[in-house]
């Protein structure tokens, strides 16, 4: 499993290939399912020209690792890679990558959806958008995936 946060421009497809070569035994996985989230130039009816993503160093990585581990416990998954961009970015920039390898496709589809949904729901990141009019505002909430039951953030202490 690999989880990392980066301020640099993310090249998700290169990350998938590089990680697969470095960490997956050849010939054992039947596929990789990936989700790549990219920045839109609109949100809630407003034109957006830039965004700044804030996070909680330490907690964010730890939290995503836990979500990946939950997915690996739940499904027959060989490996997971999650990368998330922070700092300044512009529309079309990749923001997040979730890639999951498994022997059979169902496990990687289900695990990938689980990871991206719970990352969006509970990993400590915050988006601050800059509109084309130059106004800055914090995004108040993410859209929900109607296909997945809402998970309450668990008390883990």
């Amino acid at each position: 499993m690999k989880v990392f946060i980066t301020k640099d421009v993310l090249d998700p497809y290169k990350e998938i290939l590089d990680y697969e070569k470095a960490a997956l035994p050849p010939g054992k996985h039947g596929g990789v399912v990936s989700f790549v989230g990219t920045m839109r130039d609109f949100n809630d009816g407003q034109d957006v020209r830039a965004m700044n993503l804030d996070y909680y160093p330490g907690m964010t990585e730890h939290h995503i690792e836990r979500v990946c581990q939950e997915a690996m416990n739940e499904w027959d998954v060989m490996d997971c890679l999650v990368a998330h961009r922070v700092g300044e970015m512009i529309p079309t920039d990749p923001i997040v990558l979730v890639a999951v390898w498994s022997a059979h496709r169902k496990d990687s589809f289900d695990a990938c959806r689980y990871i991206i949904n719970y990352l969006k729901e509970s990993a400590p990141f915050w988006k601050c958008e800059v509109t084309t009019a130059g106004k800055k505002h914090w995004v108040e909430k993410n859209s929900e995936d109607p296909g997945v039951a809402k998970r309450v953030v668990r008390k883990s202490a």
Binding site: Y56, H84, I95, I116, K120, S122, P124, K127, E140
Partner: peptide, 19 residues
């Protein structure tokens, strides 16, 4: 309701919006 102890790091933040 969580009870704190000396040395704890406590963070307050709004709903998260990553991904």
């Amino acid at each position: 309701a969580h009870e704190l102890k000396s040395g704890d790091e406590v963070a307050f933040f709004p709903p998260v919006t990553g991904g």
